[in-house]
């Protein structure tokens, strides 16, 4: 049975699209046929982060309106056979994401894919609600910072009351925390909320911790999901999170300050 996963946060700029791209690519690398959908109508960006912006012909709204069929709109990733991108539209029509239309498209996607990743827009408006409505699982992307934690709590509340599972009195959406842009050195100095603090405040299970890393910007610059960069700590942390999502036990890495070697300290290169 296909599983629908929403990547959401409430707050903008915390790494939802980066996470959607990395998670979808990670699931594909693990052999699961996966599609990642951009729900941010009017502010399309997943295509850029996935590096397929020049291959977009038809989009999500075209398929909802019946102007194109699903297979015309899906973009097959050039790096991996299991990975597909479903771009959104740049329309300014706020109500283009009609729930019945989205539902029909979701049902159709479930016939073809094992995992459907929904990249939510920021906020708690129509787009964000539609992105989480059909979810079986939710990954809450949070930065160790007060406004992000507060907005995450808000979106967790909305998942519990306004998702389809909640409306139908079905078992609740499985909600997990992904802490991104984590800087263990600043945590050690008491300048940043620690993993344990955020976990305690939000009281949801922890899926992973993604360290602040230069490789994330490098990945979006080049349109490559960060998991394809084998040297990237963030990429490795995402692959760990994917493994945990699939039920494996993995120790949390990158949560303690890195020990700088004598030579590195001497020559000042991190």
């Amino acid at each position: 049975m296909a599983k629908v996963i929403v990547i959401t946060s409430g707050k903008g700029g915390v790494g939802k699209t980066t996470t959607s791209a990395a998670f979808a690519a990670g699931l594909a690398l693990r052999g699961h046929k996966t599609v990642v959908i951009d729900f941010d109508v009017g502010l399309r960006n997943l295509d850029l982060v996935m590096g397929c912006e020049r291959r977009v012909v038809f989009d999500f709204i075209n398929v909802i309106n019946g102007d194109a069929n699903l297979n015309q709109a899906l973009i097959k990733d050039k790096r991996h056979d299991n990975l597909f991108i479903f771009p959104t539209s740049q329309t300014r029509d706020k109500n283009a994401l009609k729930r019945e239309g989205v539902e029909r498209v979701m049902e159709e996607l479930k016939q073809q894919f094992e995992y459907i990743i929904c990249d939510s827009p920021a906020g708690i408006e129509h787009g964000a609600i539609t992105a989480l409505y059909f979810a079986d699982s939710a990954i809450i992307v949070t930065n160790p910072e007060v406004s992000s934690v507060r907005d995450s709590d808000r979106i967790i509340g909305i998942l519990a009351s306004r998702s389809r599972r909640a409306e139908r009195n079905e078992p609740p959406v499985d909600v997990q925390l992904l802490l991104t842009r984590y800087d263990p050195a600043r945590v050690a100095k008491g300048e940043m909320l620690a993993v344990e603090d955020v976990k305690e405040i939000l009281s949801i299970p922890l899926l992973g911790v993604i360290p602040e890393s230069e490789s994330v910007l490098r990945a979006s610059n080049t349109g490559t999901p960060v998991v394809f960069d084998e040297t990237s700590p963030a990429g490795r942390a995402y692959l760990d999170a994917v493994a945990r999502f699939l039920g494996e036990q993995r120790e949390m890495r990158f949560v303690k300050p890195e020990r700088r070697s004598f030579f590195r300290a001497l020559f000042g290169r991190a």
Binding site: D153, S161, G190, L193, I201
Partner: peptide
């Protein structure tokens, strides 16, 4: 009283408030 511990306390208080008012 590191800034992180102040952040944690403030969050705990504001979220307790907001959760109570949610429904």
């Amino acid at each position: 009283h590191t800034s992180a511990s102040i952040a944690k306390e403030r969050l705990k208080i504001v979220l307790a408030h907001e959760r109570a008012g949610r429904n």
